[in-house]
């Protein structure tokens, strides 16, 4: 099935300089009761964003009017914990297209890629500089060029890795099932031989 395509993005970014942000913070379990993929953005970072009376918590980046944009920049080991794809859905539904960190948990990385969200790995030094810059100057523009695999802001630029298959999927809006369905005959043979 065709998903949205992604080539290049120029946007402001939202800094979240916290390490080990787990998927329970991204979307707490009590919001996983929906049976569709839509609407999770309202509860993205729910318990950091709103207090127990549902009032926005001042000082949290998503409530800070200085910050906006389609890029989220977070501390290392982003997306650890539960495999809930709802975390990727919430990030996507809120409007983020890219999450930048120096390290991602494996399952989150796959979930993000399966939902047209690019988990972009940068060096620790680049991440620190980007976070500091965004906090000092929230209107800083960040450029993510998927085609050429670079991320840049001001006069800083870094290349990033993404495997060729996933890159092709993102750029063309393909998903894994399209490819696996094309292997139907081989899979059936394997299943028969191993049952």
């Amino acid at each position: 099935m065709s998903k949205e395509k992604f080539i290049k993005l120029v946007s402001q970014a939202v800094p979240l300089p916290i390490e080990n942000i787990d998927t329970d913070q991204i979307i707490p379990a009590r919001f996983l009761k929906a049976t569709t993929r839509e609407g999770f953005g309202d509860n993205l970072f729910r318990d950091w964003r709103y207090d127990s009376d549902n009032q926005p918590i001042a000082g949290f980046a998503l409530n800070d009017s200085r910050y906006s944009g389609k890029i989220l920049v977070a501390g290392k080991n982003f997306g650890c914990g539960s495999s809930r794809e709802h975390a990727a859905w919430a990030i996507h539904d809120y409007g983020f297209k890219v999450v930048v960190s120096s390290f991602f948990a494996d399952i989150f990385k796959n979930n993000a890629l399966n939902n047209a969200v690019l988990p972009l790995v940068v060096s620790d030094a680049f991440l620190k500089e980007l976070l500091d810059t965004l906090q000092a100057n929230p209107s800083t523009e960040v450029i993510v060029d998927l085609e050429n695999q670079t991320i840049s802001f001001n006069n800083k630029k870094e290349s990033f890795d993404i495997n060729a298959y996933k890159k092709t999927c993102l750029i063309n809006g393909y998903d894994d099932i399209d490819y696996l369905l094309s292997l139907n005959k081989e899979i059936k043979e394997y299943d028969l031989a191993h049952s």
Binding site: R84, N163, I177, L180, L183, D191
Partner: peptide
């Protein structure tokens, strides 16, 4: 553990694409 898109993959094809 896998995400829901991958659950769909496995339901549909009994396979998963993984490095």
């Amino acid at each position: 553990g896998i995400g829901t898109s991958e659950v769909e993959q496995v339901l549909a094809t009994q396979c998963i694409l993984q490095y």
